[in-house]
Simulated scan of single mutants.
Amino acid sequence: MSDSSTDNEASLHQYQDIQYSLKQSNRKTTSLFIERDGSVTVRAPLPYDMAKIESIIEQKRSWIYRNLAEWEDLNRVQVHREFVNGEGFLYLGRNYRLQLVDEQDEALVLKNGRFLLRRDHVDSGMEIFKNFYRTKGLDRINQRLTHFAPKMGVTFGSVRVMELQHRWASCTSKGDLNFHWRCLMAPLAVLDYIIIHELAHRLYRNHDAKFWDAVDKVLPDYQRHVSWLRHNGAGMGL
């Protein structure tokens, strides 16, 4: 879910029938990921050994096929929300119906169990909702970071809620944390998992056994939240 911001520009490669994006950085090991959008990414040290990279891809071929098949199944039906009365929008795991109103001070508010959007702002609905998630998300995430960081014995740098291409969140080598605004659609427990995941990267950069042990110590049922994201991530959009 995370890696250093010191990655060089990604380059596209093809190994037999598997297309992948290669990112190089000052890391010691080579790792392979299936990104949130279903693309394959290989992160390798500088300088990289192409023969070693292709060997890893070959070793993980069955794993890649299995995960891509699951991704295609889960993402077969994409969610496209319309800014009309009665449409449902997720916030912290709950579905709130949209109501268009003629008069209110703010473009969008969450009130009495409904999202209220000014009718004259419908054409900008997507950006208004994204801004809502960014603004509310920053406060919420900062609260949870302040709660969990001392428990894990780590610190962190700047925090941003933004548009991330492939990941739910990321942690740079300097400790700056970035979270996708879509995270705010997930239940609080799942959001906590995403936050704990990134804080664990302050201890271990790679997803090795020590990394997952660090997550498990704070959130023993984290695998349930990983599963939730895999099965519900496609529905977390606008």
Rank of each mutant, 00 (worst) to 15 (best):
Q24T: 12
R114M: 13
R134S: 00
D120L: 03
V77W: 04
Q223S: 10
W63K: 01
E72G: 07
S25T: 11
P187M: 04
T155W: 12
P220I: 06
E127W: 10
D17Q: 10
V215N: 03
I64L: 07
G157A: 11
H225K: 11
K52C: 06
T30D: 13
F83P: 02
I34H: 09
G157N: 11
I141C: 00
M152G: 10
D192E: 05
L46Q: 11
N178Y: 13
G93M: 09
S55T: 08
G125W: 06
M185F: 03
H231R: 15
F211A: 04
F129S: 03
E103D: 05
C183F: 00
M236Q: 00
S4T: 15
V161S: 07
Y204R: 10
W181S: 09
W181F: 02
W228N: 11
L46N: 14
T41V: 09
S62M: 08
V122E: 03
A189S: 12
L229V: 12
L90A: 08
D7Q: 08
R43H: 06
V161R: 09
H197M: 02
D105S: 08
K23D: 10
F83V: 06
L74Q: 12
C171P: 14
R114G: 03
N67W: 12
S2L: 00
W71D: 06
G233L: 04
E87Y: 09
P187W: 04
L46M: 09
D139W: 04
R160P: 02
V122I: 13
F132Q: 02
L92Q: 08
F148V: 06
L199R: 02
R81K: 13
Y222Q: 04
D49F: 09
I18D: 04
Q24S: 14
T135G: 01
V161N: 10
D17K: 14
Q59A: 09
N232L: 05
L90F: 14
R76M: 10
E127F: 08
I57F: 00
H225P: 01
L110A: 02
I64M: 03
E72D: 14
F33A: 15
A209V: 00
H180A: 12
